[in-house]
Each structure stands twice: as C-alpha cells, then as structure tokens.
Design a protein around this nucleic acid. Structure first.
Lengths: 140, 140
DNA sequence: ACTTGATCTAGACCTCGCTCCAGATCGTAG
DNA sequence: CTACGATCTGGAGCGAGGTCTAGATCAAGT
C-alpha cells in the first residue's frame, strides 16, 4: 500500500542546487558534515536522489544560515531531529535562542543603517551645494 | 598659534581597543592593511598615539564592518578620504551602495525571523499540548 | 557505439578576518 | 635601579565555510 503509490518525484543534486541556491559542492559538503536529517538516497548507479523532505529541510537550513546560524548549531539541530520525537523542548530552545540573536542582529543593523544614512546625507548635501566649497572634516 | 594649544589628548592602543571594541591585534592589523586614513602618530619610543580623529574613524569602521562591509571596501573608502576633497561623489556611491546592501540584509533577516518564529510557535504549541501526541513531521 | 554532460569520491586549497607567538623594547611605579 | 606590564615587529596559525581538482563513472541522445 504505502509502497506502491506514485513514485515520489526525487531530484538530482543539480536540481536541488537550483532550488535551494546552494552549490552542488555545498550540498555534498553539508551531507558530509552531517547537516542533513537522513542519509540521501542513491540510484543504483550511486547518484544522489533528494526527496521533497530533503529539499524542505535544506530550505530551512538556508534560512538559518542566511540569518547567521553557525554550521555547528545547524548540525546539532539536525541531530535532534534525526533522533526523533522526545526532544522538542531542546529544538525549541535552539531555535528560540537563534531567533533572539536574529532580533539583536536586526537592531544592530538598523543602528548601522541610520549611521550610514546620515553620512550619505552629509555627502549628498555637500554635493548638492557644489563641489568647490573647501575644507572637509577628514572623517566626514 | 595652532601648534601651541592644549595638547590634544591622545590615546594608547590599549585605550583605543577599549573604546572601539577592537582588539589591539586588530588595530595593528587594520593599520597594516591601510584601513586608517592617516598614519598613526608615534611617541619617541615608537608607541602608537591615536588622536580623536583616529578613534572617530575607527568607530565608523566598526559600524561599517558590523553591517558587513568587507575590509576591501573599507580600505577603498579610507583611500578616498586619504586623497582629500574632490571625490565626494565616489564616497557617496560607496556608502550608498552599502546602505542598500544593509537594507536588503535587514529585509532578508526579517524574513528569516518570521520563518523561525513560526517554527518556534509550532514547537511551543506542540509542547503546550503535551509531549505524548505521537507522529511528527520530520522537518518540523 | 559514441559523445556529452552531470555526478561521483577524496582530499587539497582558498578567502576572510583576525589571533597569537617570539623576542625585543618602552615606560612607569617602587 | 629594578620590575613589571604594555607595546613593538614580522610572520605563522587558525576557524569558518565553503570551493575546486583529478580522475573515474553514469546516463541520455544520435
């Protein structure tokens, strides 16, 4: 029954690279590093076939990496999921800690942006007033 | 006249490290890499003395680095400032490009945050409903 | 059968941004 | 004068996160 449905469409490493934005090199690297939940299936010829689960997980990985989670934490998270139910509190802690770091990061970036925007404004005003008005604060 | 005022209080590398959050190693490294606008002054004995200009510039550097500007761009910016007036348009372009990257970064982070917050919510709800309710989407 | 392009493995290599070390010197407090 | 901590230089080393190479194999089109 469960084994005879339409064959779940599986993807080659190249297709997954396209869909996730990771390079094929990075995909193999992630696998070696134990960042995937399960082992990737193979064809008789040894080529990887990724399931949609794999791809979903990878898309989450991409989001977590994009927001600065180190590979070590990602690996830890993968391990928790791999071990199956029973450690949801741990997973929650891990994600929530990361969420807080992301919030802090956003705040820091917004501060940076305002500093930069102010400096951009200084230069723009200077240029608007003409190029030849002399002395400049070297730090401006 | 201009040479006999109160001696501008200058700081040692350790004091600058404290004030900027950069390590003394990093400060020497930045200098070697040409990331400072001018050469740092030295005492007769060869120790660095940083002016408040230096410190201000370093604080800007810190903000730019914090927001992800690569050292190469920082160096480029320092070179422009070092060359003096006349290239304000270039400086503006450099900073404005960076501002745009920061904006994009903030947007990306906010997207990440919402994905993460959603997952945190999923786990939290699961835990609130009790630990023993069975099957789990492995990607959850 | 042949060609072409994607994929395979193991492992070397790379960039970035510091960090640390060794061994010498400075400078200030006792 | 002596100690001791801070600083000096040049260069090696490091951790993160991939990236790339070589040489072989697989799979699909003609």
């Amino acid at each position: 029954m469960t084994t005879t449905g339409a064959p779940v469409p599986s993807l080659s490493i190249g297709e997954v690279a396209e869909r996730t934005g990771l390079s094929v090199h990075a995909l193999r690297f992630y696998e070696r590093e134990g960042l995937l939940v399960g082992p990737v299936q193979r064809t008789s010829g040894g080529r990887r076939r990724y399931t949609s689960f794999d791809v979903e997980w990878l898309l989450i990985c991409v989001k977590l990496r994009e927001s600065g989670m180190p590979l070590a934490d990602l690996k830890h998270f993968a391990e928790l999921v791999r071990r199956g139910p029973g450690n949801e509190a741990d997973r929650l802690r891990l994600l929530d800690a990361h969420r807080q770091r992301v919030d802090a990061q956003i705040q820091a970036l917004e501060e940076c942006r305002s500093v930069i925007a102010w400096k951009v404004g200084v230069y723009a005003e200077h240029l608007a007033r003409g190029e030849a008005d002399g002395l400049w604060d070297p730090t401006a």
